[in-house]
Write a protein that binds this DNA or RNA. Structure first.
Lengths: 210, 210
DNA sequence: GTCTATAAATAGATAGAC
DNA sequence: GTCTATCTATTTATAGAC
């Protein structure tokens, strides 16, 4: 199972991609340096322009990768034969899984929101649309099955995605705040947050609130 | 009530502050340009270094302003003689009010989270600590009054702050996604979101969930 | 595919005149 | 308080050798 020589090019491209994700997450699009990305990828700057057209295109590819992964996760959940309740649980879990598989995800997403989606191209926009309409489809299915009460989808979506991304993105800052004297703020686990969001979401859909 | 001449200096300092908030929100700390801030403030670059020690100190002052405002809002609510329920409602509303008074707030906050609070100094850290311990105090008061069930404070805090900041920060991106075919995503109002978060929070504290 | 060298613009910060 | 001019480092991107 010797690795073929041809994979070395693919490896260098992947090294650029990975190093760029770290750099964009840490410094933002405008603050990221192509020089630093090259150094981290153990390559020279010219190789970045060989593999990608520009800094912007490299960044857009990272965005597409992030949201195509989320889309793939949630559409798989929606297409399964699980109950509407379990699809809601799976929807939350799939978003968490996509974020966890990419440590740069929450930071880049937060920054991209801050600049109004300036680098969100048509493909990424399509993934975002699909993620949201997938939740809508699950809600419709649950309603028609007589299990879900009517809700405002966008409020529900916000109550899922926001605390989830917030949890992952704030992990380093929470450690800093904890050292400043707020006890227990870092003790929250991924499973606690996911379970909490799942319960809150289902409680709304079961009409336990309002 | 003629304005004294001395206020012109204060004005130029404020112009720098305001222009910097816009620039940092739009491009992030590393991406922000002192040149552009000066141009937007209708001043030259040297004036920025006259009023502030450095780009970093200018940025840190903006962070302090943001979180001292949040701290002031929530401590006023906690110190009032309202019921625990109303203090929870007021806590949510105070955070929303501080964010609304500063259009740059959500974007800068999201970016600062993304870089792990690298520019959060001791003063800002103190404000953050106070905001969180204020929620803890309201929860304690409600429990001792026999009105609130025990909850995990940090999960509750996340379920308040995250959707709130997310709502404000994503407004421009949501308009972009709406144009891509997701209807109604921009129709959500500030009052709907605040009311929703207030209800969700109180439902948890009243033990309606879990 | 990978490199060095370099172009052309812009960065943060300061000196010194007024 | 406000300005122009400038220093030094760094920026994105490309040309061209191998």
């Amino acid at each position: 199972m010797a690795r073929p020589k041809a994979s070395s090019a693919a490896d260098s491209r992947q090294r650029v991609f990975d190093a760029a994700a770290v750099e964009f997450a840490a410094r933002g699009y405008a603050g990221a340096s192509v020089d630093r990305i090259a150094r981290a990828a153990r390559l020279n700057k010219a190789m970045i322009y060989y593999h990608f057209r520009s800094k912007a295109e490299l960044y857009r590819e990272i965005l597409r990768d992030m949201f195509s992964a989320v889309r793939a996760g949630v559409t798989a959940v929606a297409a399964s034969d699980a109950s509407p309740d379990d699809k809601i649980r799976g929807y939350v879990d799939a978003i968490a899984a996509a974020a966890e598989a990419r440590p740069h995800f929450p930071a880049i997403w937060f920054r991209e929101i801050a600049e109004h989606g300036a680098h969100v191209d048509a493909a990424t926009l399509g993934y975002l649309r699909d993620v949201m309409s997938t939740l809508g489809a699950i809600l419709d299915e649950g309603r028609h099955a007589g299990r879900f009460h009517p809700v405002t989808p966008i409020l529900l979506q916000g109550a899922i995605i926001a605390p989830l991304m917030f949890f992952f993105a704030t992990a380093p800052l929470r450690r800093k705040i904890e050292r400043a004297g707020v006890a227990g703020i870092s003790a929250v686990t991924r499973d606690m947050v996911v379970a909490h969001i799942q319960q809150l979401t289902l409680a709304q859909l079961e009409g336990k609130i309002v």
